[in-house]
Design a protein around this nucleic acid. Structure first.
Length: 433
DNA sequence: TCACATGATTGTAC
DNA sequence: GTACAATCATGTGA
């Protein structure tokens, strides 16, 4: 307000010093001077300068009083007109500079990110969608629920702080804008201020506050990123699979040793059985293949063990099949009571057994089918005996499938590969590779 | 505490 | 996209 008074005083002084008119209205001669005298003009300027220099010493009341005096000055309308003219001229140059700013790409990026992370946007409850997305992205299992809730809680915290700060900024921005607008309105009584100018001023204020907001958004994004990376790091902490899960995986691995590449279906089935994710199954098989290949000797015993186990299971299944065929009830499906896989496309031998029992007998075919089953069963049983011997000390089991280069023979064309437990007539339907 | 086991990640090749 | 190989990081048992 002091500034305004000062300006008004100075401008008032100049105008009084003998400026001309606007709109043909002649300015009356300045009081005390005729306006043509050079010495008088110098004195006017000296007076103005003096006023300017002394204004800082004035109290607010004095300044207000002076302002009031200027407002009531008889020359005020003329002065106002002069100012309007000046304004009109300078306004043109200002207008060019106040182009509409295009949306800031960085701000857009931050907004998008906050939206995607569940910090911004309508959901004020706290980023459960983001947590779920993060979980899905990293193949989360049920055992991550604690980390999930931690993540969610921290994200909620960030979100709350963000919204509180944002509201504060918005409030401050509105208050400041209102304040400036009031000032401008008040000033418009003494100098020409168009609505556009007010709008421009408001725009400037908003831009200033947006830059502050952008800083807030940026730091929020950083906080979310840090939280996210910590969360993912925490997920890196591994837990050993359960004994049962490892057993199931090993059983599959050794029963498909000739081609240990489970299909997607098999992986899904294994994942379900082991209560782990498909990617964990893939990881497990990846690790297993490499480690087996690197140190076959070490895994020999394990291989024997699982081969024997599988063979025993197969023998049980075979016995059941024999009973079925003897009872002439070929449509009875394979019960799978042995605990082996009932996957339709996975097991080497299991598939054989299932196909044996799943066939529909049609009159004359019966005899031949039964004979073929019996042959297969004989083979299976002989295999079983072999593995039992292996357990007893003879190394009956030898690593199948590995070629001279250390890779699995025809690992990617599994159809003709024979697993150590399967019979000659079995079908390999592991089509994963 | 240490050595080994093991699940996960990363870079590369196909 | 998948598999392999190397590596990391943690779990586990002696």
């Amino acid at each position: 307000m002091d500034d305004q008074a000062r300006i008004m005083q100075s401008i008032g002084g100049v105008s009084l010093a003998g400026h001309s008119v606007q709109g043909g209205m002649p300015l009356p001669p300045p009081h005390g001077h005729d306006g043509t005298d050079g010495d008088g003009r110098k004195q006017d300027i000296g007076d103005i300068l003096h006023q300017i220099m002394t204004i800082t010493d004035q109290s607010l009341d004095e300044a207000q009083a002076k302002k009031h005096g200027l407002n009531c000055h008889r020359m005020k309308p003329a002065l106002f007109s002069v100012l309007c003219e000046i304004k009109e001229k300078t306004g043109l140059s200002i207008r060019g500079a106040q182009e509409e700013d295009p949306p800031d790409p960085q701000l857009m990026r931050l907004d998008n990110m906050l939206l995607a992370e569940g910090v911004a946007g309508p959901e004020k409850g706290g980023g459960s969608a983001a947590a779920a997305a993060a979980a899905a992205a990293s193949g989360g299992a049920a055992d991550n629920s604690i980390e999930h809730s931690d993540y969610r809680a921290k994200l909620t915290q960030i979100r709350q702080i963000y919204h509180t700060e944002l509201e504060k900024y918005e409030q401050a921005c509105n208050e400041f804008t209102t304040h400036v607008m009031n000032l401008l309105r008040e000033q418009s009584r003494t100098r020409p201020i168009s609505p556009k100018e007010i709008e421009r001023m408001v725009g400037i204020i908003h831009r200033k506050f947006s830059s502050i907001q952008m800083q807030l958004k940026q730091s929020t994004c950083e906080a979310v990123m840090i939280l996210r990376s910590r969360f993912l790091d925490a997920r890196r902490k591994r837990r050993n699979f359960s004994k049962q899960a490892t057993e199931i995986l090993n059983e599959y691995f050794y029963s498909h040793l000739s081609n240990p590449y489970p299909s997607e279906e098999a992986k899904e089935e294994l994942a379900k059985k082991c209560s782990i994710t498909v990617s964990q199954v893939s990881n497990w098989f990846g690790n297993k293949r490499i480690r087996y290949k690197k140190n076959i000797g070490k895994f020999q015993e394990e291989a024997n063990l699982y081969a024997a186990k599988t063979a025993v299971n197969a023998a049980h299944a075979a016995a059941a099949a024999v009973q079925n065929s003897q009872a002439n009830s070929p449509t009875t499906p394979n019960s799978g009571s042995s605990g082996s896989f009932s996957l339709p496309n996975t097991g080497d031998m299991f598939l054989s057994m299932q196909s044996l029992n799943g066939d529909s007998y049609q009159g004359a075919q019966v005899g031949a089918n039964v004979q073929s089953q019996v042959d297969t069963l004989r083979h299976v049983i002989s295999q079983t005996a072999g593995y039992n011997d292996a357990l007893a000390g003879n190394t009956m089991y030898s690593p199948h499938g590995l070629n001279a280069n250390g890779g699995w023979q025809d690992a990617r064309t599994p159809s003709s590969v024979i697993s150590p437990t399967e019979g000659p007539g079995s079908v390999h339907s592991d089509t994963s590779n």
